[in-house]
Design a protein around this nucleic acid. Structure first.
Length: 916
RNA sequence: GGUCGAUUAGCUCAGCGGUAGAGCACUACGUUGACAUCGUAGGGGUCACUGGUUCGAUCCCAGUAUCGACCACCA
């Protein structure tokens, strides 16, 4: 016999182990079955499961389990990501915390990379274990890592990356270029635009005066305190504003708008750049906005993206003043830029202070404005990013994007919800060259070798490069590694064995759907689209389902610094994986974020208990699916006919909702059926049958109840795999034996299971009970009291129904006796149900005034309804334009309402007659 | 500046061109051996505002307000 509660903590691990050992997660490779594949968004190999993972993988698991039960050939491809910067950062920090003398630099490249592999092996299984706790039914035997395997010579994952690089290079789609990049001075690497996070911080605009050379002066307009023009003043300087004053050391020009009257005459003149005493020109360019600031802009081509362009247009010198750690240059470069000794080697922020002090001390500071400014930060390092001039490798994303855009336009790949397409297009249409080289050690090393004079040999291996270069030519490999997303972009096909031609690749590419959050569309989805189309000549997945972000109860992003992080593993410990999964699924409405609260998870934990106890009830009453599938045509009891139809409706609703990625609708449907229909009604309704003497109805009811429970387990399984599997197994201990795991059962389909007559009859019975209960509640009839009930004016149908369900009605509505009568007995409370009036004999139990009030209230409510309907029905336009079925419906509503009103009015009269 | 989304019960959110729903919270009462991690009943809403389309708008359209997200830029 079942215990009182489902012990999630105990059962989950066992169940998962049994599934895995039985090979349930592997694709059937049944060639006659439809293939269904999802590639997991690979989590960072050294990461831990957070709530976003929990949601993402719950949704995927629902889809996967559903597809598997539908008999498809299902692959959920698992794997992890090497996460270049993030992982390198963790290992570097570990070295620092170890407190020894070891650092990345002291170890050297090879030893350091070795350490990272070591750490990967040590911690890499963690997140996989956590995904298992969630119930994720990935095929772990096919686990892949974006870096491939350690020390394997011809590793396929690495070969895939190299082949892509080499092919793109040979097609001219990868090239080396010297231009400004987003430079992260902490990690000392370039990062892509997407890895830069603009943040608003408190800052200043320093308005600097640059003295004009050669004694030039000009008239500059001035304004009074109210901002009114107040003539002009003669100036021998030009004012520029900046939020990064230290960059002035690298200024090589001042730009003004060609139409700016104030400065027109200054174009072509020079200023003397303070501190470095460099003579730099004033140039005219469209870039400066005369409305902003002073209208004059200092130009630092080496350290600002806009300035770089201006400098190019105006032929200004590019003068680097920063080192890779964003300190002021020393040595030759400092000489070129004429940096005074006391500035050389200073950190950028120290230099800033010194520059500001210099301007203040020399009467060169026009104004210091305090305000909030947007500054670029590295998403991993958290330090301010500097635009820096370097050589990097770029992918011509513009070219690759063409097909990726077209594939979405012609619906080969579909975004769900659809509105994300626009986001995708916006970005793709304006895509910038993708900087793919990183000055890190942990990652795929760029497969390029250089000859003695900088000749470039791009090849799959050093041997091939050597062959290209000729024997004996000394070669050195490019030091850089590739952006992590470069290898992630290949995930849908590299995991399936590409560049090899494998069965898996043929079967499972393209995948059915990619499930991810919107913040990854640019990083990953767009790039998989580009690379998939380029190398497989086919889209990587048919659907892209974009799910919500998981926020805390207050709608804030979870973050360590806010201290509002909810750990999915803690929640699994406390409430069970099923409860967490169901909570996430039930809140996964399209287009809205999820606010997670423990209350709600607790509620779904209670749901597992409810299900468990319902199963226990079935078990106690020997309700089991004894004779295989139920044949609806042979079921006789209306209550059983009805519940079979309810199962069918629920099953269809669940399937349809999952297919449309409407996880909340699917979970709601199965939740409501289980709790509000099966438990609240059906199990109560069948108690008399189960306790009764009639063998045939009893046997039928046991069988049907058992069958319904089995169907619930199947329909619920994708959402709550553990508790359903546990019940599936436990119920077989005292019931018919089961054919294998629940997770491998066929998803049910129901044809001809509905029975309109039974539905009508049961809905009458349910209404009967609800109405009586409602009245009892309002009139405060004591729960223990069992008043009698006369059914008045019953037609033959009602009488038949009454006969059939009398026992149940008496029991559920707490009545005794229930009988047919010709007139409403004196002092009874009247309730109208269908053609009959239910007369509840409670005169001695209730307050007559309260009953009078109840009736009056009810009648006035009905009259209001009738008024509304009449208004419609006398409106000619309504009659002329509304569809006939709507008009018909209004007529019916009106007739019903009037009938009810009349009966209640009679009842009220009677009550008043007694009272007086 | 551009784009997208949100505004429905005290809270968190579904929903829909034709009687406004759920969970939680709240109130009352707890019988009947599956379940107190429960049951039954109840209170509570001008569906942000203003216009428009329509026989009919919470729903469609336009505008306004507030909130949020993303992209771009800020010398």
């Amino acid at each position: 016999m079942l215990d009182q509660f489902f012990n999630a903590a105990e059962a989950e691990e066992q169940i998962y182990k049994r599934w895995e050992e039985a090979g349930c997660f592997k694709p059937s490779m049944d060639t006659s079955a439809e293939a269904y594949a999802i590639v997991i968004p690979p989590p960072n190999v050294t990461g831990v499961l957070h709530m976003g993972h929990a949601l993402n993988n719950t949704l995927q698991d629902i889809l996967i389990r559903f597809a598997r039960m539908q008999g498809k050939n299902v692959l959920w491809q698992a794997g992890t990501d090497h996460a270049g910067i993030a992982t390198q950062m963790v290992v570097e920090r570990q070295l620092a915390e170890a407190g020894g003398n070891e650092s990345r630099a002291s170890l050297g490249r090879e030893a350091f990379v070795d350490r990272v592999w070591g750490w990967k092996e040590e911690s890499g299984g963690k997140i996989v274990g956590q995904l298992k706790r969630l119930g994720a039914s990935c095929d772990w035997s096919r686990l892949r890592f974006t870096m491939g395997e350690r020390g394997v010579e011809d590793d396929q994952m690495q070969a895939a990356v190299r082949k892509v690089f080499v092919d793109l290079y040979n097609d001219g789609l990868i090239y080396r270029d010297k231009r400004l990049v987003n430079w992260d001075p902490h990690f000392q690497t370039a990062i892509s635009d997407l890895e830069v996070e603009p943040k608003e911080v408190k800052g200043h605009y320093w308005h600097l005066r640059y003295p004009l050379a050669d004694g030039v002066t000009y008239e500059h307009p001035v304004f009074d305190e109210d901002g009114e023009p107040a003539g002009t003043e003669t100036r021998d300087y030009i004012v520029v504003a900046t939020s990064r004053p230290e960059t002035m050391l690298g200024d090589t020009g001042v730009a003004v708008h060609p139409d700016d009257e104030r400065y027109k005459d200054l174009v072509g003149k020079d200023v003397i750049l303070p501190i470095v005493n460099r003579r730099i020109p004033i140039v005219a360019d469209e870039y400066p906005d005369p409305e902003k600031g002073s209208g004059a802009v200092k130009i630092t081509p080496a350290h600002d993206f806009n300035d770089f362009d201006v400098g190019k247009r105006c032929g200004l010198e590019v003068m680097n003043i920063l080192t890779s750690i964003a300190a002021i240059v020393d040595g030759d470069e400092a000489d070129t830029a004429a940096i005074p000794a006391e500035y050389r080697g200073l950190d950028r922020f120290e230099a800033r202070k010194k520059v500001v002090a210099h301007f203040e001390d020399n009467d060169l500071m026009q104004e210091i404005e305090s305000l909030k400014i947007e500054q670029p930060f590295g998403d991993r390092s958290g330090v301010v990013i500097e635009p820096w001039l370097t050589d990097q490798w770029y992918v011509n994303a513009k070219e690759l994007a063409k097909e990726a855009i077209a594939a979405v336009q012609d619906n080969r790949t579909r975004f769900v919800p659809e509105n994300w397409e626009k986001t995708y297009y916006n970005w793709m249409n304006d895509i910038q060259p993708w900087c793919v080289s990183r000055q890190l050690w942990w990652g795929h090393r760029i497969p390029v070798w250089y000859g003695p004079n900088g000749e470039v040999y791009c090849a799959m291996s050093e041997a091939e490069a050597q062959a290209q270069a000729g024997e004996g030519v000394p070669l050195t490999q490019d030091n850089d590694v590739l952006d992590t997303w470069f290898s992630s972009a290949l995930w849908p096909f590299s995991t399936l064995g590409w560049p090899g031609e494998t069965d898996e690749l043929k079967t499972f590419y393209p995948g059915a759907v990619l499930v991810t959050a919107f913040d990854i569309i640019f990083f990953w989805v767009a790039r998989m689209m580009m690379q998939g189309l380029q190398f497989m000549k086919e889209i990587p997945f048919k659907d892209v389902y974009i799910h919500a972000l998981v926020l805390d109860e207050k709608g804030q992003k979870m973050s360590k610094s806010k201290g509002n992080v909810m750990d999915p593993l803690d929640l699994i410990d406390e409430y069970g994986a099923d409860a967490l999964r169901f909570s996430l699924a039930s809140q996964a409405a399209q287009g809205r974020n999820i606010r997670l609260s423990t209350k709600r998870i607790e509620g779904y934990r209670n749901f597992t208990t409810k299900l468990w106890n319902a199963a226990k009830f079935c078990q106690m009453n020997e309700c089991a699916n004894w004779n295989g599938p139920v044949d609806p045509s042979r079921v006789k009891e209306p209550v059983n006919q009805w519940i079979i139809g309810e199962v069918a409706r629920t099953g269809e609703a669940v399937a349809k909702a999952i297919e449309g990625y409407r996880f909340n609708e699917a979970s709601d449907a199965i939740y409501r059926f289980t709790w509000n229909v099966f438990c609240d009604w059906y199990l109560e309704l069948i108690k008399p049958l189960l306790n009764g003497e009639d063998a045939e109805p009893k046997a039928e009811t046991r069988r049907v109840a058992g069958w319904v429970l089995d169907e619930i387990l199947k329909l619920l399984h994708p959402f709550m795999p553990f508790v359903t599997e546990e019940l599936w197994e436990k119920l077989s201990e005292d019931g018919p034996s089961r054919d294998g795991f629940l997770m491998m059962q066929s998803w049910p389909s129901y044809d001809g299971f509905e029975n309109a007559e039974a539905d009508a009859e049961m809905s009458w019975a349910l209404d009967f009970v609800s109405e009586i209960r409602g009245v009892r509640g309002i009139l405060n009839v004591p729960a223990g009291a069992k008043p009698g009930l006369a059914v008045v004016n019953a037609g033959t149908e009602t009488k038949k129904r009454l006969e059939r369900h009398r026992e149940v009605l008496m029991r559920l509505a707490r009545l005794d006796p229930v009988y047919v009568d010709d007139n409403v007995p004196a002092g009874a409370v009247s309730i109208v149900l269908g053609d009959a009036t239910l007369a509840l004999k409670v005169a001695d139990l209730i307050d007559q005034k309260a009953e009078g009030d109840r009736l009056k209230k009810r009648i006035s409510g009905i009259e209001k309804d009738i008024g509304g309907i009449e208004k419609k029905l006398t409106n000619e336009k309504f009659l002329a334009n509304a569809p006939p079925e709507i008009i018909e419906e209004q007529h019916t509503r009106k007739a019903n309402a009037e009938s009810e009103r009349n009966k209640l009015t009679d009842a009220l009269k009677q009550l008043e007659a007694i009272g007086s």
